[in-house]
Amino acid sequence: MKPDACSIGLFHGGEVLLIQRALAPFSGLWTFPGGRMESGETPLECVKRELFEETRLVVDDPIEVLVETVGEGAKTYRLAVFAAECPMRAPITSHEITDWEWVPIADVHAFRTTRNLCDIVEACAERLGLARTAP
């Protein structure tokens, strides 16, 4: 089944970029940049567009890591999660983001995140060949 939303874990060394959502769904929670696919868009096109719209960051070759079902209440989405290493460290965020922070991979559990984000961060880091750093 084709995804209808995409997100991306950006990594710089042993850190991952987390953004805090300003709007529903997931308002106030920390997660990856991303959003819903537009008509005729591929998951790769979607994740690159959403990343740029939300952070003004660009990555060349994101890797698709997994697809999961996410949602809030009765509304659910099939979310394709990508991962990439990020050459830039300072996003310029949109109105959809309240805050952002580069977080050591092992410290993600200390944030109020979307469901399963710690496991997803680990899966992304492993797929990128980064050393396992979680406790």
Results as ranks from 00 to 15, higher is better:
Met1Asn: 08
Lys2Ile: 10
Lys2Gly: 09
Lys2Leu: 13
Pro3Phe: 04
Leu10Asn: 12
Leu10Thr: 11
Phe11Asp: 04
His12Lys: 15
Gly13Lys: 12
Gly14Gln: 12
Gly14Asn: 14
Gly14Glu: 13
Gly14Asp: 14
Glu15Ser: 14
Val16Asp: 06
Leu17Pro: 05
Leu17Lys: 10
Leu18Ile: 11
Gln20Tyr: 06
Gln20Phe: 05
Ala22Cys: 00
Phe26Tyr: 15
Ser27Phe: 00
Ser27Lys: 12
Gly28Thr: 04
Gly28Asp: 06
Leu29Lys: 15
Trp30Asn: 08
Pro33Phe: 11
Gly34Thr: 13
Gly35Leu: 13
Gly35Asn: 14
Met37Ile: 12
Met37Cys: 15
Ser39Ile: 06
Gly40Lys: 07
Pro43Ala: 13
Leu44His: 00
Glu45Gln: 15
Glu45His: 07
Glu45Phe: 02
Cys46Arg: 01
Val47Lys: 03
Val47Tyr: 08
Leu51Thr: 02
Leu51His: 03
Glu53Cys: 13
Glu54Phe: 09
Glu54Gln: 15
Glu54Pro: 07
Glu54Trp: 09
Thr55Phe: 10
Thr55Asp: 10
Leu57Gly: 06
Leu57Met: 14
Val58Met: 07
Val58Phe: 09
Val59Asp: 06
Val59Ser: 07
Asp61Ala: 12
Ile63Thr: 02
Ile63Glu: 03
Glu64Cys: 04
Glu64Gly: 01
Glu64Thr: 02
Val65Gly: 02
Leu66Val: 13
Leu66Ser: 11
Val67Arg: 14
Val67Thr: 15
Glu68Phe: 03
Glu68Trp: 01
Glu68Tyr: 04
Glu68Ile: 14
Thr69Gln: 14
Thr69Trp: 07
Thr69Ala: 11
Gly71His: 03
Glu72Met: 03
Glu72Thr: 01
Glu72Phe: 01
Gly73Thr: 00
Ala74Thr: 00
Ala74Asn: 00
Thr76Lys: 09
Tyr77Glu: 10
Arg78Lys: 13
Leu79His: 06
Leu79Pro: 02
Leu79Trp: 05
Ala80Leu: 04
Ala83His: 00
Glu85Pro: 01
Glu85Cys: 02
Cys86Glu: 13
Met88Phe: 14
Arg89Leu: 15
Arg89Gly: 07
Ala90Met: 15
Ala90Pro: 01
Ile92Phe: 13
Thr93Tyr: 07
His95Pro: 05
Glu96Gly: 03
Thr98Phe: 00
Glu101Tyr: 02
Glu101Leu: 07
Glu101Ile: 06
Val103Trp: 08
Ile105Gly: 02
Ala106His: 08
Ala106Trp: 05
Asp107Gln: 14
Val108Pro: 04
Val108Met: 06
His109Thr: 05
Thr114His: 05
Thr114Gln: 12
Asp119Gln: 10
Asp119Ile: 03
Asp119Cys: 04
Ile120Tyr: 02
Ile120Ser: 02
Ile120Arg: 11
Val121Ser: 04
Cys124His: 00
Cys124Leu: 00
Cys124Thr: 00
Ala125Ser: 08
Glu126Gly: 04
Glu126Met: 04
Glu126Asn: 04
Arg127Gly: 00
Gly129Tyr: 08
Ala131Gln: 10
Arg132Gly: 09
Arg132Met: 06
Arg132Tyr: 12
Arg132Asp: 13
Ala134Ser: 07
